[in-house]
Amino acid sequence: MSAASQSPRISASGLRMAALLLFIVIYTAYSAGPFVWVASMSLRTTTEIAANPYALPWPWHFDKFASAWLDSNYDTYFFNSVSIVLSAVALLTIIGGMAAHCFARYRFRFKGVVYFLIFSTIIFPPQVTVIGLFQIMVDYGLYNSRIGLVLVYVSIQLPVTIYILEAFFARIPKDLFEAARIDGYSEWAIFWKISLPVALPAISTTVILNTILLWNEFLYAVVLITEDDKRTLPLGVLRFLGDQLEDVGMIATGLMIAIVPVVLIYVFFSERLIQGMTAGAVK
């Protein structure tokens, strides 16, 4: 043991480490805090919360989950969310994938114009388009329809999906496609057998991204869906917002039901997500 390491003086790198740790702790508390708070409230009754908003849950009212699920229609909301998000994401992946494949691989007339038209939509904030959209949906009989919401979701997420996938497809060496052509495959078969599988990291990125975004989507859902049994999970809170009374405890329980799947996706797929975002050229 050297004299230096025995002395109480803290080295520069130790100091840096401590500062970093402190930062991480504060950041974690900042981002996890609200989640922990909602989680604890989800196990407490509204009366308990009113008495002391920050107290730890005791006893644990797990029965609140059962009551939200069974008595407050959360089972319906949950399956609505699952079916709407899954259909939208599946459509997005296929349509976005095909569009990206074409943008990345073919030269065709008006390519620039088409590209511009698709991307120009992202400059309008949803608040601007939602009223017009509402009218269109009513006109086409898609108001208060799950299919209508799926279509809206597909169209709002399509540009960014195409953008991410196109960037990746463009990096796939064109020799691969040519080899497949010579191996006897049609353009259609090449899309399914080469483009999609090779672009799997990018595909999974868009799938995860779209799933999380659409799972949490509130604005379009609240405008376009009013019938209770067509609502998605984010609209579930409306159930507990009366004219006079807000059932804060049940809102927290409902939120937890909505949040947990997203958290699980993050926990299990975050590595995949980062991988896809930073994936290098295909070797």
Binding site: L176, A179, A180, R181, D183, G184, P197, V198
Partner: peptide, 20 residues
């Protein structure tokens, strides 16, 4: 005649192996 119907095989400089 499209490439797929010409019954030829090609070896590319980059090999172009299907990575997946």
């Amino acid at each position: 005649v499209p490439a797929k119907n010409r019954d030829i095989a090609m070896v590319f400089q980059s090999y172009a192996l299907y990575p997946h």
